[in-house]
Design a protein around this nucleic acid. Structure first.
Lengths: 202, 202
DNA sequence: CTAATGTTTGACACCAGTGTCAAACATGGC
DNA sequence: GCCATGTTTGACACTGGTGTCAAACATTAG
């Protein structure tokens, strides 16, 4: 194989992610991408086929990173702490930058229409939901079956089943993303998240 | 005053609302609007100035109607019923049409950038929050002060203060709007809403 | 009936973006 | 060193949208 790609692919992905995040999927043109990456428009078409394919690639990369971060946030054995950490993580992610860049997946979910793109977003949310559900079943006692050393004393109890709670939490992360756009106030987002955590854990 | 508007303004507003709702603020062009309303593009520019102004007018009309519906849904004296009715109302609103049209205000909040438009969305959410808060303080006992005849027996209690609960509820309506886009499953939305109601009311 | 007033119309000049392609160009395998 | 192979480049032909404007047109007050 001769005739080899001249640009640094990971750098391009990173730059392009920045543009998509800032402007949104729809509002981003191949022109913007070319300008931001320094790669000619023609080359981008040649290498990726078009915006949808390029975005899908970038988004799956992003989703992986995001989920890794969420996983870390969900580590604590106290569910209240884990949920709080998760929301803090999400809120930090969407309120970064000036002006804050918002939530890429939410924005994409709401504005995209391409099936590929929608599928990618759905996969990410499914994955997030599952991780939250796992954390909740791990850290809360549905009733007895004590045994584990770290939790000799009463563990927190959920006001609803863990699976349902997980869905609610994921739904809430989406709600927060929308409110960030509307009010742009991180403190307010944290308060609202805290309210949910309180309602969820008796 | 001679030289009088030839088109039926309320009809135009209604048609244009349909287009905005279906395609979203950004993706809607004056061309689309002209086609849908049967009014020439030039006339629309002349009469309204441009897309932003026209949208603002249409949106405030829409918000008024929406809030009136929400108000009606919040009438029951049982907070569980009122919240359920509210969520049902919201879910019905966003899942109408084939394919379902989604939530105009959420979509607008996420994709618009024009200050006028953002302000209109914010006003609507503030208003919704207030109505929910009113309903909650009206229908739940923060503690004693019985007296009212309809509630001689114990009234439902909130797991969090009414103001916070109201914010949470509004946030949730936004979350549901996003999930509608992602999963397109009304039943699932109702379930998630029901979970929140359960967590909120002990 | 007329004049004044505001509305409608279609055309104009413009811009931003798309997707494609032949030719010029690097590069690694031989 | 040369050639095959894949990449880069800039130009091309298009599309769909914008905002404006002079002229044609209705309508109503007087």
């Amino acid at each position: 194989m001769a005739g080899v790609r001249q640009f640094d692919e990971t750098a391009v992905v990173e730059q392009a992610l920045g543009v998509f995040w800032e402007k949104g999927y729809r509002a981003t043109s191949m022109l913007d991408l070319a300008a931001a990456t320094g790669v000619q428009r023609g080359s981008l078409y040649h290498a990726y086929g078009g915006k949808e394919q390029l975005f899908t690639k970038i988004f799956s990369q992003f989703a992986e990173d995001f989920l890794a971060g969420a996983e870390r946030a969900l580590e604590p054995d106290d569910p209240r702490q884990a949920l709080t950490d998760l929301f803090d993580y999400c809120i930090a992610s969407i309120t970064t930058g000036t002006p804050s860049r918002g939530c890429l997946s939410t924005r994409t979910a709401v504005e995209a229409a391409e099936p590929q793109v929608d599928a990618a977003v759905q996969a990410m949310l499914d994955s997030l939901e599952e991780r939250v559900a796992n954390m909740l079943t791990r850290t809360t006692s549905s009733s007895a079956h004590a045994g584990a050393r770290a939790s000799a004393r009463a563990r927190s109890a959920l006001s609803v089943p863990p699976r349902d709670a997980a869905r609610l939490v994921v739904a809430m992360t989406r709600g927060l993303a929308v409110l960030e756009r509307v009010y742009g106030d991180p403190a307010r987002l944290r308060e609202t998240a805290a309210t949910l955590v309180t309602a969820l854990l008796r």
